[in-house]
Design a protein around this nucleic acid. Sequence first.
DNA 1: CAAATATATTGTAAAAAGTACAATAATTAG
DNA 2: CTAATTATTGTACTTTTTACAATATATTTG
Lengths: 228, 228
Amino acid sequence: MKKIIKQYFNVAVSVDNVVFGFDADGLKVLLISRGSEPFPGSWALPGDLISPEMDLEYSAERVLKQLTGLDQLFMEQIQTFGRVDRHPFGRVFTIAYFALIKVEQYHPQASSWAKDVAWFKVTEIPTLPFDHREILEYARRELKNRIRTQTLVFELLPKYFTLTELQFIHESILEEEFDVRNFRKKTLSSGIIEETGKLQKNVTHRPAKLYRFNASKAKQLDFEGGIL
Amino acid sequence: MKKIIKQYFNVAVSVDNVVFGFDADGLKVLLISRGSEPFPGSWALPGDLISPEMDLEYSAERVLKQLTGLDQLFMEQIQTFGRVDRHPFGRVFTIAYFALIKVEQYHPQASSWAKDVAWFKVTEIPTLPFDHREILEYARRELKNRIRTQTLVFELLPKYFTLTELQFIHESILEEEFDVRNFRKKTLSSGIIEETGKLQKNVTHRPAKLYRFNASKAKQLDFEGGIL
DNA sequence: CAAATATATTGTAAAAAGTACAATAATTAG
DNA sequence: CTAATTATTGTACTTTTTACAATATATTTG
């Protein structure tokens, strides 16, 4: 028993969070500037070693909150990375999580050993330490899959949104373009998006109709997949 | 630094393998009879603590080989489970993997601390220790997803197979039934299954045509999804 | 106020895919 | 030869997907 402890109970586990944010500019990822070893000064995914006393799911939320102040996000596990040499301090397995938020509705603040926090467009990511680049790429692929099989997009939209915005999100995430007419036909026919009667304000062109996601209808229809 | 080691490098990581097997009887799972603490005598997923010196992917294969003799399987990671109290010896995170094989082509042999090894129909699983039941259920859901989005079924079939067998596999895994005519139309139209000109032998009824999976055609067509 | 600019909105026809449904064929066993 | 067993096949209908461009509504500019 002592032997077992010595032999096996000597590794560490961390979580790394890929927080995707969306605004008019497109899809972004939240990174922190590391203020401690290893790789101080480097931009990295907000992640940290986790303490043995906490459940895994809760640890992911807690680490994110400690480093960025973000709380109460809907986080999903994506994959565990366990290459032997991925961390210079020793054997560290890391479990990657991802979350999706509206950039304008949250105000991340660097704290704990995070010296700064900032959004980066997914197309302009700086060099990342550890295997964070690999984790991020995996998360992007996974995001594409899940956006097609879960009703996730509405996490990225304000309560009232235009169909153009809805289409822009899909195009940004999936990195492909859709025909406007077909996109509208398909999304509206899903039955989970409804007109509000309201119109866009303060735009310098024809104002678009505002729609809203009908969550209870979605539940009632047992609607699961993405809307495309 | 010393502090960090003491505070964080004191947990363990294990892998648990969900090996699905298929034969005329349907879908099965490979379990071992545990010959060591904790839960000796209990049937469980073949899994074990992993040593800090090995890459994660490789560990999964190695654990499986040690306990069951199975080697060279195509294994995929599914999910990590990290409830605080999931293991009585201390904090153990476990990373679940799954594999798919033809029952008749492998001959698992219990070794190391596994005292026995046996196939169990997925509908007749005994009580499992740890959170193995939860892991198994997760794996079954995941299998359904992946059978629809990856070209996995052929792992479960002999080189030459009948369309009836192909349909039976789908029905067993997805737990739903398909119309014979529509099933054949759809699978054949995928273009990745080809006639061999051969017929079933030694059957007591009209012999079925034997087909084969055309892997190079699949690659050429960049065929990715399941065939249903 | 007319024209320019910018974005929003809408329909239709053709093709492809999915669905529902049952009779006939080929083999062995008796 | 008959019964039993499983294999094989087609068609009409519905639904979904795809391709494609003209008109509408607002603001800004001259």
